[in-house]
Nucleic acid binder design. Structure first.
Lengths: 154, 154
DNA sequence: ATTTATGCAAATCGTTTGCAAACCT
DNA sequence: AGGTTTGCAAACGATTTGCATAAAT
């Protein structure tokens, strides 16, 4: 992870009266290195901090807008760095076999269409859209060849 | 709910060696009447059956392709009738205040673009998309006027 | 020195499961 | 009767929390 990213995060935490501790740095490093949303278990494994600390820090980072919670299809919550930190607006490929979540992007045209759909909803209902979520559900290459969904959350 | 719908569901259950019991009928009726995804608690409240039976029947109906599990942003699972039973392809408005999920539709043009994005992913990666999920996250009219997210899952 | 973060173990809570009674065919 | 579904209460498991210690400022 770049020093610049670290600086931005540090500032964002300080603005919320939070410290950028070594544990939180480890956690951010794990998410950065992964390049895909990680489960709490994966974060714990990679970051080397206690489970409770991982959850607590993820909550802090989420509140400060550093980390985002990602909804998959299984029972595990997943976490990734906020998009405005990575400058990489993306969507998710969700494997219905193993639950793994990976990133993908769509054309600017499609993004614009999505934005316009949001505007339409905003003006035709009382709902005030904030952001959108576009996921593709299917089977990843591994689960397709392996036959079925035997997990590997390591 | 229409007799035709009941017929279809009955058939679909029978094909999986499952019965269309009164409890399951009540559950389907509750989902039909609601017209939006319901939490397990809401289903229990409306269907008048025990919690464990509700969960068990929802699982059976999900396996048989009658009911679909919907991911929101809160800790509650939500359920709705499968789209091919309602002939109503739709997406979800998810309120980040109260968690409530409602339906909305987009233009056929946008749907086609989404389909084409799926095809692109399919051919450029090993991932085999099955369906897509487009959600708009924001605040519902009630939560916007009420100020903030005080729950009402009744 | 005082406040905040950590790790452990216990608690929480939506969901799942074992089991005996009620139900359907 | 034979197999399935139901409701109750107990079990489960991911996540959260209480509390005493360690770290940061």
């Amino acid at each position: 992870m770049s020093d610049e990213l670290d600086q931005t995060i540090s500032t964002r935490l300080r603005e919320a009266d939070q410290r950028y501790t070594s544990g939180r740095r480890a956690l951010v490093a794990a998410l950065t290195a992964a390049g895909r949303p990680l489960t709490a278990a994966e974060v714990v494994g990679a970051g080397g901090l206690a489970q409770s600390s991982a959850y607590r820090n993820l909550a802090v980072l989420e509140t400060c807008g550093v980390v985002l919670r990602v909804a998959g299809t299984d029972e595990f919550a997943r976490f990734e760095l906020a998009e405005d930190l990575t400058d990489h607006h993306h969507h998710h490929l969700i494997c219905t076999g193993c639950g793994r979540v990976t990133d993908f992007t769509v054309s600017d045209d499609l993004e614009r269409s999505l934005e316009s759909a949001m505007d339409t909803v905003a003006s035709s209902t009382g709902f005030a859209p904030d952001h959108h979520r576009l996921d593709l559900l299917g089977r990843c290459a591994t689960c397709r060849t392996t036959g079925d969904g035997s997990e590997d959350r390591s």
